[in-house]
Simulated assay, not measured.
Amino acid sequence: MEPEIIHIPELAQMLSRSESAIRSARQASAAWLPPSFKQGNRICWRVSTVRQFLQECESGLHAPARPGRKRQAPPTLTL
């Protein structure tokens, strides 16, 4: 039976990242990290939330905003 709540080591394995990368990303509020919660002193994730977050990333919902100003349409020529 799979656990419903996972911690940093399990999330690191699930995302193919190191534990230190997960800790650093959490401190920096990285966009690629699913939302977490605290249970006592431990940082936790629900497996269902992580899977849903990954599916949303695949569909492009969590894409970072592109830097720079928005393009304007070129002026049209009127004759």
Rank of each mutant, 00 (worst) to 15 (best):
M1D: 02
M1W: 10
M1H: 09
E2K: 11
P3I: 06
P3L: 08
E4V: 15
I5P: 00
I5A: 02
H7V: 10
I8V: 12
P9W: 03
P9G: 05
P9L: 13
P9N: 09
E10N: 11
E10G: 08
E10F: 04
L11T: 06
A12M: 07
A12K: 05
A12E: 06
A12T: 07
A12L: 05
Q13N: 09
Q13L: 04
L15G: 01
S16H: 11
S16V: 09
R17I: 00
R17L: 00
R17V: 00
S18Q: 05
S18G: 09
S18R: 02
E19W: 01
S20A: 08
S20G: 05
S20D: 01
A21I: 07
I22E: 05
I22F: 01
I22R: 01
I22N: 05
R23M: 03
S24V: 13
A25K: 00
A25V: 01
A25W: 00
A25E: 01
A25C: 04
A25T: 01
A25H: 01
A25D: 03
R26V: 03
R26F: 00
Q27M: 14
Q27E: 11
Q27L: 13
A28W: 01
A28S: 10
S29C: 12
A30P: 02
A30G: 07
A31Q: 11
A31C: 13
A31W: 03
W32A: 06
L33S: 04
P34A: 14
P34M: 11
P34V: 10
P34W: 00
P35R: 12
P35W: 12
P35G: 06
S36K: 06
S36H: 02
S36I: 12
F37P: 00
K38P: 02
K38M: 09
Q39Y: 02
G40F: 09
G40N: 06
G40M: 04
G40S: 05
N41S: 15
N41A: 15
N41E: 11
R42E: 02
I43F: 01
C44Q: 06
C44Y: 03
C44I: 01
W45E: 03
W45M: 05
R46K: 13
R46Y: 01
R46H: 05
V47H: 03
T49S: 07
T49I: 14
T49R: 13
T49F: 11
T49V: 14
V50A: 01
V50R: 01
R51T: 06
R51S: 05
Q52W: 08
Q52N: 13
Q52I: 08
F53P: 00
L54P: 07
Q55W: 13
E56P: 03
C57W: 02
C57A: 13
C57L: 08
C57N: 09
C57M: 12
E58G: 15
E58V: 15
E58S: 15
E58T: 15
E58Q: 14
S59W: 04
G60F: 02
L61M: 12
H62P: 05
A63L: 14
P64H: 04
A65W: 04
A65R: 10
A65I: 12
P67M: 10
G68S: 09
K70N: 08
R71K: 08
R71N: 07
Q72G: 11
A73C: 08
A73Q: 09
A73E: 08
P75D: 05
P75E: 05
P75Q: 12
T76M: 14
T76S: 13
L77N: 15
L77I: 13
T78R: 09
T78N: 08
T78P: 06
T78K: 12
T78V: 14
L79P: 10
L79C: 15
